[in-house]
Design a protein around this nucleic acid. Structure first.
Length: 217
DNA sequence: CACCAGGCAAGTA
DNA sequence: TACTTGCATGGT
């Protein structure tokens, strides 16, 4: 079967079994962007606590965080792990925001997608997944997000080779799917939900994974 | 105890 | 260029 058909069937199977995801959890483009940086190689539960630490003090605000002392910010985001490096990464991103749009996300939304992505990738601490997460989930522009779960799930179903890199996997999705923000949003959300439940790192197969069930049919 | 979590950059050869 | 290591908390 063609890869495109597989990817479309994956989506149908996950969507019908799991229902809508309503992603990304977060109340504003800024909160979503902060979450995208904090969740790098980190359990989302830990990120929630870090964001709550900021929110409860009314400090989840780009200007306040920009001028916040590094040590204070580090202590607030500590539950998210890698807290020193992530403090620097957040500050780098905040400087980017100040320079590009004066902390006004609606200006970012008007930028050309590829130009924006290139500029985000120039920020130290923002790699391809974080950039795409910000573009897709905070700015609602169509840039497919690839993560470790995506790679693992596709690999175990023989859709991609073991060492396929980020751009190769991203290109597979963008070449097979219509360029649609809602579809990109929901597809990645579903893959993460499936991955969290069924597709651990050292488990050779995705036990009871909906996609396995799809393959049995 | 080992292993993992919605990565990324810097160091080494 | 290709591989390795550091970053760190909190849950199973």
């Amino acid at each position: 079967m063609k890869k495109q058909q597989h990817l479309l069937n994956f989506y149908q199977t996950m969507s019908s079994r799991l229902g809508p995801s309503n992603w990304w959890p977060g109340e504003s483009p800024f909160e979503i962007s902060v979450g995208a940086i904090l969740t790098q190689n980190t359990n989302w539960k830990n990120v929630e606590q870090a964001i709550l630490n900021l929110k409860s003090r009314n400090l989840l605000d780009p200007e306040k965080m920009f001028f916040m002392n590094d040590e204070q910010l580090a202590q607030l985001i500590r539950p998210a792990g890698y807290f020193r490096i992530k403090t620097t990464r957040l500050k780098n991103f905040l400087l980017f925001l100040y320079n590009e749009c004066g902390f006004n996300f609606s200006i970012l939304e008007k930028m050309d997608l590829e130009k924006l992505r290139t500029k985000l990738l120039e920020v130290k601490g923002i790699g391809p997944e974080t950039a795409d997460s910000i573009i897709l989930y905070a700015l609602n522009k169509p840039s497919f997000v690839v993560d470790a779960y995506t790679q693992r799930i596709l690999n175990r179903h023989g859709i991609i080779h073991e060492d396929a890199d980020y751009n190769e996997i991203k290109e597979l999705f963008t070449s097979c799917l219509p360029e649609d923000v809602t579809l990109y949003n929901e597809y990645h959300a579903l893959l993460v939900r499936v991955g969290k439940s069924w597709c651990r790192k050292k488990t050779p197969v995705c036990n009871q994974c909906p996609l396995e069930i799809y393959f049995e049919n």
